[in-house]
Design a protein around this nucleic acid. Sequence first.
DNA 1: TTCATGTATTCTGTATTCATAATTCAAGGT
DNA 2: ACCTTGAATTATGAATACAGAATACATGAA
Lengths: 218, 218
Amino acid sequence: MGIQRRPLREQIREELLLRLDRGDFAAGKDINEVVLAAELGVSRTPLREALITLAGEGVLESNQGRGFRFAPVSSKEFRELCEIVAGLESLALELSDPDELREMAPELLRLARGFPDPVAEQSEIEWHDDEWHDLLLGRCPNERLLDLVTSVKAGMRRYTHLIAGEDTLLEREAEEHCRIAEHLRAGDVPAATAALRDNWISGMERMTSRIPAAPGTA
Amino acid sequence: MGIQRRPLREQIREELLLRLDRGDFAAGKDINEVVLAAELGVSRTPLREALITLAGEGVLESNQGRGFRFAPVSSKEFRELCEIVAGLESLALELSDPDELREMAPELLRLARGFPDPVAEQSEIEWHDDEWHDLLLGRCPNERLLDLVTSVKAGMRRYTHLIAGEDTLLEREAEEHCRIAEHLRAGDVPAATAALRDNWISGMERMTSRIPAAPGTA
DNA sequence: TTCATGTATTCTGTATTCATAATTCAAGGT
DNA sequence: ACCTTGAATTATGAATACAGAATACATGAA
């Protein structure tokens, strides 16, 4: 590829999401723009542009005069996000060409089975999960829908690090992925859609207990 | 209410959406930030913040070095947006409390019937339609979902002015709204959901013919 | 001691300035 | 005549500067 020339705001946005994954930011804590800009080696302007973008995606919240903060986690919001993603992903599946889905099923199955690798890195696992879902939706012709899914999932990143080191959760996940892939291989899209919904809803229920109740935990 | 103190970027965003509704902007035409900022009486900074927000919502698109432009309309995108909103609104309906929906049904019916008012203003009609859908979804407990619907609908505003003066379209719309409300009154949420989906899909098909094919029409 | 009030400080929100990429147009060469 | 090339112009992307709101703190009264 040639020299990449992308707006700083996008690079900053990605860097912030990365840091979010690493759990660098205390949720609910105000962001100091000057400090963060200095840390990133950029000026406040593109930083603020990135912050505004993230606020639009629900990753951050902004209050007049008090700037931005990483939105505190709450089981209610997590539930809401899961419901949304479940709806969007199953919609994407319904809009995909059934034949192409069937073609893709073996690959999906292979990926799902190779899930609980020996002792994979945590970040590796999360990436793996994302990749599986991306592959699943890749054939959906509705590009706006795919963008939307990506955007909403960005808002869920605050919750992903909570599953750190939970092997049982991941096994259940892999199991359900297999089931979805099986349905697709059989050409039964409605069943696959239902299984996908279940995947998100049950995942939500498994997670919801480990979300701290009190919002203002310093 | 007290004194309103909101960031300029939000006010600017709304003003731009308003102008979009009025059809002030030629789709596909580049936006000159200096000129527009002067026109609005603000500096480029909050204007750019609003533009970035709108780009995140899909109303605008931005290309490196070439700034922002109102995304050209395309029947493909319109179809995609309709599919998304249909999915999101029916999801919202499914997540609502059936009893509350039934309580609300008479009001919905009343509004739907009062639809094709004598010779209402175009903007009035659009507002009326929005209000009906807002009322329909108002009882959904998933706040994030409602925000998302609002955001996606903002991206559809570029298409609303295309229905100007199409009475038959509006009549069909009112008719379908009645049908949805009837289902809700009967307590049949699945049927209402299906009707809502149909409402969007058929609306899409009715509209799709009047979207100019060529993107670069000055 | 506790609460209220005034002041100082910090940080955001907005404006302005600067640098550089993109576009336009004209001149020269094929 | 047409294409290429380069300078000039224009507009964006980014940095800096400024004004005002929000917060913290200290001082004083009840």
